[in-house]
Design a protein around this nucleic acid. Structure first.
Lengths: 145, 145
DNA sequence: CTCCGCTGCAACTGTTATTGTTACAGCGAG
DNA sequence: CTCGCTGTAACAATAACAGTTGCAGCGGAG
């Protein structure tokens, strides 16, 4: 079911920015982040664009351009990131419309929407409990990955 | 993120079987189910194969072949279905390996694995609370879909 | 013991999402 | 003005799915 790693990349980006911030540097480039994630800078910029729209990072143009965390890492939760990168629901309904002549085909989508909404809400509650600062701490506590 | 509708199709299949069972018919064919879902019988058989492996349905071959619910709809939870159709985790980690020379790249995957595992566990708990019988009831309670 | 309807499964196509990549215009501090 | 970086479009490669066709195999009904 899980398809993309946008969530993972976005968290990686923010965690890296939080580490660099702790080390005294505040403005970083997509190129530098791309080195840590081991991917293309454009991929990082796409991720950063999502995070900027969500108000989690700010960008500066021109010479000396780059990105900065808009908030303290302690105040950015995984839920914030989830909201920033997620357009699609976690569970997809039917691709095509079920048979409306059948009582199941007619009524199952609203029924499933409710169940799926509850499940997603549970995920959101769980993600809200973890901040980027938490992830950074856990990340640095790990010896090998 | 959500990619496939396997979960939705599987629940639809079971709910339809539960309804038909309530109406006195116990053995049904993939063709009949496909009519309700409005898709190809092979798609349904692929779904039923997952459900059979999980022990939720049984199959009979030869003349008068078809499928039967292996358990009462009241005892089949959405979690059972989730387990039957899900191989991939809900949240994917990096596609490629992050830069191991970077402390974030080295430690973030185990850290994220933990967070994601907690989130998935929350989903499982929520799905475990709903049975196919519940879904059937809600489905029939809906006027339009 | 043959027939026939259904399952099991492999193979192929069309579609779509995502990632990675190249290319280039635009911005603005120095 | 210059230069480094952003913003974004465009494109290729990959992968997952849904849908479809075709056919072998099973086994009760007759």
């Amino acid at each position: 079911m899980s398809a993309n790693s946008r969530m993972t990349v976005a968290v990686h980006v923010l965690t890296w920015m939080a580490l660099v911030h702790d080390r005294g540097r505040d403005v970083v480039t997509s190129d530098q982040i791309a080195t840590s994630v081991a991917t293309n800078p454009v991929v990082i910029r796409r991720s950063l664009a999502d995070l900027r729209e969500a108000g989690l990072v700010t960008v500066r143009h021109g010479a000396g351009a780059g990105w900065t965390l808009a908030r303290a890492a302690e105040s950015i939760t995984m839920l914030d990131v989830f909201r920033a990168v997620h357009d699609e629901p976690l569970f997809a309904l039917h691709r095509g419309e079920p048979n409306q002549a059948c009582p199941i085909g007619r009524g199952i989508r609203p029924a499933l929407r409710d169940v799926y909404a509850d499940a997603e809400e549970a995920v959101r509650r769980e993600l809200a409990r973890v901040t980027i600062a938490d992830v950074l701490r856990e990340t640095l506590a790990t010896r090998s990955g």
